[in-house]
Design a protein around this nucleic acid. Structure first.
Lengths: 224, 224
DNA sequence: GTCTATAACGGGATAGAC
DNA sequence: GTCTATCCCGTTATAGAC
């Protein structure tokens, strides 16, 4: 894991290169020849190890997403345990959801930046394949966190909380996807993961706790 | 504008088809041949009217973004005028920013859905070209709305407010980009633009007003 | 202005030697 | 397992007829 020399097995070299290039240029925008050239291997090696470009993508994606989502669920379980019979706070749920994404940046250095960018991109990737895989991965995770939010904020309706959870996904996704060199300010500050986490929680927490807007068609501002 | 028959000029037919396909499959994932086949014109017509695939993209993008951003600025100006010498509320600023995006869905019907999806995608599009164009368009707009937020919430530091404005962009971008058929619930509800707008403002408003988190590396809660 | 035809190239995938 | 060589297809772009 630490030795990043040239001695890595071929399939991992391919995965690393594909990860980097998919993150930078998207799936459709990256050719197998770029990947194999960057990995220092032959084009045929991809087909031998993965079978096709699509399967390679699937391999790249699960190598990233699975451990992060596992950590999310683990942190959520720990937060629920620590809160004893009470449900954990909104902030604790948010932290369990956001921290693994942010932490990966610090712990994996340059590759962490690549990974988070790749993940952010994948959520809005045009390819049906990519989004299908993301949703597959997100299904159980989403239900778990939705349920946790419902217990943390019982006075907001569940479907409203689901919408808000999606908004949380939106924020973290976008912040991960936009490269930090790029105008718009240093959105992520990879050196200050804790600060970014506090920033996100300070912004998102009040929105999740906020009372739901009144239902109904176009009634102006009637408020019971 | 209303007559959407086959009598439309070639260049507009190309723009319409390109808009639809770029939205569905991304820039790199769409070929000129798909576009021209869908538009019922010849491949060479693209080069005659636009010069290249990139220039076609630029044309598609500005046709969409420019009127929306113009309306955003106009609504902001109107809100500032209505609030007299006082600055407008956070909610008024948010509405000026969000409403044009949402309204386009209702007013343009199916094409509105296509457009919003295209816009949402473009913000995280892997292509440097696309993002460069988006940023170009966003520059002045971002400054204007940032300034408006700073006056609406003077007790939150400007850079924090800029970060939060980006979070607003993230939410609207994501909600626009995710197709509504797709699991994750009907995030946008194009039939109920007003409801969606209230929902967004109810969620985002409190986050923007929230006190900024304490600064500094890992010092707990020192606040000068 | 719009078409046909073709150039010039790069893409993913595969067969078979080693 | 890994390479070379090649197939076959789709891509952007252009030249020239109409």
């Amino acid at each position: 894991m630490a030795g990043s020399g040239a001695a890595a097995p071929t399939s991992e070299r391919i995965l690393d290169a594909a990860e980097r290039l998919f993150a930078a240029k998207g799936f459709a925008g990256t050719s197998l020849r770029e990947i194999t050239a960057s990995a220092g291997v032959n084009v045929a090696a991809v087909h031998y190890h993965f079978g096709s470009k699509e399967e390679l993508l699937r391999a790249v994606l699960s190598r990233i997403v699975e451990p992060v989502n596992r950590e999310r669920l683990e942190l959520l379980g720990r937060a629920e345990g620590a809160a004893a019979p009470e449900p954990p706070s909104v902030e604790a749920v948010l932290e369990a959801f956001l921290a693994p994404d942010l932490r990966v940046i610090r712990e994996l250095g340059e590759r962490g930046a690549v990974i988070t960018r790749f993940m952010g991109r994948s959520y809005t990737e045009p390819s049906d394949l990519v989004r299908g895989m993301i949703q597959e991965q997100f299904g159980e995770l989403g239900r778990r966190f939705h349920q946790a939010l419902c217990r943390a904020v019982p006075d907001v309706p569940p479907d409203e909380l689901f919408w808000r959870l999606m908004a949380v996904v939106a924020v973290v996704t976008y912040m991960l996807a936009v490269p930090r060199e790029e105008g718009l300010g240093g959105l992520l500050e990879p050196d200050d993961v804790d600060g970014t986490l506090r920033r996100m929680i300070a912004f998102l927490g009040p929105g999740i706790r906020a009372p739901a807007p009144p239902r109904g068609g176009q009634s102006a501002s009637a408020r019971p």
